[in-house]
Nucleic acid binder design. Structure first.
Lengths: 320, 320
DNA sequence: ACCTCCCTTGCAAACGGTTGCCAGACTAAA
DNA sequence: TTTAGTCTGGCAACCGTTTGCAAGGGAGGT
């Protein structure tokens, strides 16, 4: 059995409360006593039991991190950053994957609620209303979704989309396909919003689509048939699937069609052609989300992080 | 404040112990009473507090999952599978990333110890001795490492390496470079073991290397200079970096050098040329690891999962 | 020498559940 | 009707820690 506070107390002839204070309020205990306690604790390999502590203090020093799909390469860097930041604040992170299913997401949040001090909700698929309801039971920080009064880390998707569209326009593209993401995705809506008001461009919308390679693969024929000379895809995975699908139809990228993705994930950097994409600040977002959660007096502070266009090899001049 | 067992008890005029039993030992309470309690609980939105429960029962219904690097695309599918399997058993998973640093790994295990019923240690970088020592405090299941008396999920790397080597030999390759992984990696040792006893082949070893794209990129010049016509890389990331590095030197894959990786990660499937690789059963491993942890009476059951060679486009006949 | 005040420590009641033990109410057998 | 046995539910101790309260002791001021 692991040593408890009692063992330590007995070992150095002091009351348990003194041991407790040695760790949670050192300034209240005499330096001499403190070092005796510390020595005994070290000797017995004592480590405070966080669950027991949580019972009285109400703080668990745990947080939840919920993503739609861990396998999507966009998330791991974010998770890693969040997790590392949390560790630095003496927090542990429960990571959960909802399989893109809003019901799983809800159930997950519910069971996590009591175990954590807060939840980081990344690219949620739940409705705003539901999120607001759940927020009554546990503090949230939402990533990639704007909900009034709720702390959020946003990535400036609109700006990124504008950058991408400008880039394509500059290359002479006029008819552009916009391959959107799943229903309930805030980023997808942002992209569509920007696209809809883009002047001088002829846009064709396709969606909703699965935010995966398979999703891209599936729409490739339609995209090819619509006469667009360029595509703006919901994310890199979709873009990659799209390129794959186009290649199967002998349509070259970027020679015949230009493709831009979003996220800047690893496979896109390694792919041939290397993917032109709008980079999302995932690492920064993970860090910020943790900070926001920990410092938030529940205030709805919102941080917006800028995106950047990374031009690589999947975009080129429009064929004339 | 969330409803507690007391609120429920009061709400239906019954003692707390009865409410407790309704949830943890339903057969001990009268069906009529039980349904009254259930109704009240449902009404108040009561959910048992797992931390409090853990205090008396000693079971937290949490498990830890420690990986060297979440950003390595090999891990997310494993994590996802483990997490989903755990959820099915009413368990939650703490995911942590050690940044490939054994000291971080140790500290992580230590702080997690009291909070979990067991830890899944994936591709650990710690020494066997240290792992055995830590195992005194918390049950482990090790993935990709064989430690006597400790439950483990192994992937048959040796078999995979043989498959890969045979494949290359069949294509006429004789001088083959083996680009290994980091120190402390069991899979890296397995590979080297198999390679060392391969008859009729002329092997050149390179290592240790970072198990990342950067690692592959860095050894590319040496590999190119050693005169090998084929390379067996520690994992797909290294293989991809290698291909990248070779391309920079105008060396074509597979025309001039064949490359085989390990893992079968997404970027390898999307890359051009598509990577020939030894597929690791990550999903199955994640599931098995959870099952092993939950069923193990601490017995050292070991499961070995087979690997499979997936021939794609990065290997070809040796140039003569 | 007396009175304050501060520092340090012990005491005990929580926190939310679980569980061994016991007693009362029934049921069924004699 | 008595007796033994089965159900059911209450009581209270306990899990490991925190924390408000109070008491004892020493230091400083007058």
């Amino acid at each position: 059995m692991a040593a408890t506070i009692k063992d330590v107390a007995r070992a150095c002839g002091v009351h348990v409360s003194t041991v407790s204070r040695t760790f949670s309020a050192p300034h209240l205990v005499n330096p001499a006593t403190r070092s005796r306690v510390l020595a005994a604790a070290d000797d017995l390999g004592y480590r405070p039991n966080r669950a027991a502590r949580a019972l009285t203090t109400g703080r668990t020093f745990n947080m939840g991190l919920i993503v739609a799909d861990i396998s999507n390469p966009f998330f791991p860097p974010l998770i890693k950053a969040a997790q590392s930041q949390a560790r630095g604040r003496d927090y542990h992170v429960f990571v959960a994957d909802t399989d893109e299913d809003p019901r799983v997401e809800e159930e997950l949040i519910r069971t996590l609620t009591k175990q954590v001090d807060g939840v980081l909700l990344c690219s949620p698929r739940l409705s705003n209303k539901m999120i607001e309801r759940l927020a009554e039971d546990v503090p949230f920080v939402v990533v990639n979704r704007r909900i009034k009064g709720m702390p959020a880390v946003l990535m400036n998707v609109a700006q990124g989309a504008r950058l991408a569209l400008d880039h394509l326009a500059g290359l002479g593209h006029r008819r552009i396909a916009l391959v959107s993401g799943p229903i309930g995705s805030w980023t997808s809506n942002e992209m569509q919003g920007v696209a809809a008001e883009a002047a001088g461009l002829d846009l064709v919308f396709f969606g909703p689509n699965q935010p995966t390679e398979a999703g891209g693969l599936a729409v490739a024929p339609e995209v090819a048939a619509c006469g667009a000379t360029a595509v703006l895809a919901y994310n890199d995975l979709v873009a990659l699937g799209l390129i794959e699908g186009l290649a199967a139809m002998e349509i070259g990228v970027p020679d015949q069609i230009s493709v831009i993705g979003f996220d800047d994930i690893l496979p896109g950097r390694l792919n041939r052609p290397k993917l032109t994409t709008v980079a999302m600040p995932a690492v920064q977002a993970g860090r910020m989300a943790v900070d926001l959660l920990l410092q938030s007096g529940g205030e709805g502070a919102t941080v917006t992080l800028d995106t950047a266009l990374i031009v690589r090899e999947s975009t080129g001049r429009a064929q004339t």
